[in-house]
């Protein structure tokens, strides 16, 4: 399998951190700006495809990736089940209760007619279980898409499956 030219490698090295940061930004600010868990995870999945193409068949530890993926999904289900403490499955029990972790309140925005339109400035730790679920789904989607890309990449590049 012919090696990628050093130009591609250096560009990937430079842009890896930037794209990764951008993906994390999209995940963490899911409840404030457009984006969210799935979108950010897909961006980082694309980054893994770039890395795999640039540096050839890489020995990724599949066990670690599967563990990350499962923890993401379990945290997602966990927050859903925790909502049961207040009687409803998937109830946002942290939102708007001024609990310092994720409970801070929006500053309301202005009312037009009787509809409150959101203001742009909102605290990051503001929307309770939505942020937690954003991160959980983000984690899960990152690991899932990386697994798919790595499995198929190894299948195509090396003709057999060596990553363990």
């Amino acid at each position: 399998m012919k090696e990628m030219s050093p130009i591609v490698k250096t560009i990937t090295k430079i842009s890896f951190a930037a794209i990764f940061l951008f993906g994390l930004y999209i995940i963490l600010h899911g409840h404030l700006t457009p984006g969210g868990g799935f979108q950010g995870g897909a961006i980082i999945g694309t980054l893994m495809a770039l890395y795999l193409v640039a540096f050839g068949a890489v020995k990724w530890r599949k066990k670690v990736l599967s563990i990350i993926e499962s923890t993401g999904l379990l945290v997602f289900i966990g927050t859903g089940l925790l909502g049961l403490t207040t009687g409803y499955f998937f109830f946002n029990f942290i939102g708007g209760t001024d609990n310092p972790i994720f409970g801070q309140q929006l500053n309301g925005g202005e009312l037009i007619g009787d509809v409150a339109f959101p203001s742009n400035s909102a605290p990051l730790l503001s929307s309770g279980t939505i942020s937690i679920m954003n991160m959980a789904v983000g984690l899960e989607v990152i690991a899932a898409l990386t697994l798919i890309i790595v499995t198929m990449g190894l299948f195509a590049f090396a003709g057999s499956e060596e990553g363990e």
Binding site: H31, G36, G95, Q105, P118, S126, T129
Partner: peptide
Amino acid sequence: VDPNGTVNANNVVTAIVFD
């Protein structure tokens, strides 16, 4: 976007998707 509600998310799409 209601501050004293339970959702408190600025991005209504994510609020709907996750809450």
